[in-house]
Nucleic acid binder design. Structure first.
Lengths: 158, 158
DNA sequence: CCGAAAGTTGGACTTAGTCTAAAACTGTCA
DNA sequence: TGACAGTTTTAGACTAAGTCCAACTTTCGG
């Protein structure tokens, strides 16, 4: 389940290194560049949600952040995720198993939903090509994506 | 909001004709053909959900059905929708504003989500073409669709 | 240090959906 | 007809996801 890339558990405290923790300094700067005032809670939330390859739901983010920051409130996480989304740090997808999920990749891309595990994976924009989208009559298209459902064959490692 | 098509309130009892009510006989037969025993509640649910062009959520179906069948319970509606889906009468989409919605069109097609109203519209399968879907490595594709978001321009009539 | 604005908090509330045990209905067979 | 089994429906409790709000805390500018 965990994506074992970006192994920068550099100056992390003596806890397990399972959660992806980027340097707080860098995260604070990233927030500021997007016009978000970096509070401690926001940095904690960002350090998980901006660094993950999962597509967590809001409640999943809350659970994750609480592990290292137990006194954070649910309202804060929800507000913050909305805030991040408004500021363009996140994208909100509505294709998951009934809940809205957040995707730190803001650039357009497609999605693969694993029917067995429910996991969502990104598909690079150029891996697929949609034709005739500009021929749709009467629709002002703002964005589009292909949603592929199926099962991942073979090479899935935990 | 009401879709004033299929005005076959033929041998219906003396009640109002506001909701789309197909002939109960025909619906019962349709259910039987799909291996669903047609109870009164199931026919009531089917007569709305199989005849609509909306993409209602389960709770919306419940609300609609209760208008003409006030004593129907929520569990029945949820069970029935699941049952219909298993029997291939409905398809369940997971792309709506955070909820699962049902689509009486079982054949593959694409979807347009109106960002302003949240309404979902079908896009015919042949209106778009997705290339390179068979080149996706390591994925057993079961189905796919294009989800288009934007706003409907002009000519929208209810 | 003060006040205002921004941020955070817990908890109540809402909405969507599931679960359950009991009741009601249906078909069958004697 | 009446008894039985299996199916369907029911109300309501429960859970999960998410919103809302009023109060508290923190930060920032002066």
């Amino acid at each position: 389940m965990a994506a074992p890339r970006k192994s920068n558990r550099s100056a992390a405290p003596a806890r397990d290194a399972s959660a992806a923790t980027a340097a707080p300094r860098a995260i604070a700067e990233q927030l500021e560049r997007h016009g978000v005032r970096p509070s401690a809670q926001r940095v904690a939330i960002a350090s998980y949600v901006l660094g993950t390859e999962d597509h967590p739901s809001a409640d999943q983010v809350w659970a994750r952040v609480k592990e290292r920051f137990p006194m954070v409130s649910r309202a804060t996480v929800y507000n913050t995720l909305r805030h991040f989304t408004e500021k363009g740090l996140l994208r909100e997808l509505v294709l998951a198993e009934g809940r809205q999920v957040f995707d730190p990749v803001v650039e357009p891309h497609h999605h693969f939903v694993d029917d067995e595990t429910g996991a969502i994976r990104d598909i690079p924009w150029n891996a697929l090509k949609v034709a005739k989208i500009d021929e749709l009559e009467g629709l002002d298209v703002r964005e589009y994506m292909v949603v592929v459902r199926g099962v991942a064959r073979g090479a899935r490692k935990g």
